[in-house]
């Protein structure tokens, strides 16, 4: 226990992170916090669905929760049930084998709801494109509010995408 506490103290708080990416991060996170406070009353619930990604985009979504980006401190939370979600984060080209599951997840969300398509695959179908097995971009299956390009998009780009989604007429569709 002593070692554990010592390590916590020694590492300190990483969230106010060092230069380059972090200047953009700081701006994004401040605006995010305000938007979330204003529109979602302090908390934004996100449901992620992998509709057929290579799992690269998932790696970066995981990184959003690390101490550097610390999205929970911004009022964002990944939730298990679509019934609790405000925003659907979809990765990958939509594999035909996932189409029904994706649609059902979306249908299960209460309105108003937002959809953010993640990665080059989510935006355009990416390298996999459309085929007998893939429906291509997420917008071919669901109405998408914001697309975040990148292969995979960095955590900062993901935060920017989420910010854009919630600040651009959040959840007008229901």
């Amino acid at each position: 226990m002593y070692q554990l506490l010592k390590q916590i103290v020694k590492v300190g708080i990483k969230t106010e992170a060092p230069p380059d990416t972090d200047d953009s991060l700081r701006v994004v996170s401040q605006r995010l916090k305000q938007e979330i406070l204003g529109v979602f009353e302090g908390s934004l619930a996100i449901r992620h669905v992998d509709a057929g990604s290579c799992n690269g985009c998932e790696l970066e979504i995981h990184m959003l929760s690390n101490p550097y980006y610390n999205i929970e401190a911004l009022g964002m939370k990944f939730v298990a049930s679509p019934r609790h979600a405000d925003l659907l984060l979809v990765t990958g080209p939509v594999a035909r084998n996932m189409e029904v599951a994706l649609q059902r997840t979306y249908d299960a969300m209460p309105g108003p709801k937002l959809v953010v398509a993640v990665g080059d695959c989510g935006c355009t179908g990416g390298i996999f494109g459309e085929s007998y097995a893939s429906r291509g971009r997420v917008a071919n299956v669901l109405a998408v509010d914001v697309s975040v390009p990148g292969c995979p998009p960095t955590p900062v780009a993901l935060l920017q995408g989420i910010l854009t989604a919630i600040s651009s007429g959040a959840g007008e569709r229901s």
Partner: peptide
Amino acid sequence: LGYTHKGIDKR
């Protein structure tokens, strides 16, 4: 499994 089948061999 097979849900993320996106036709890589064909691609």
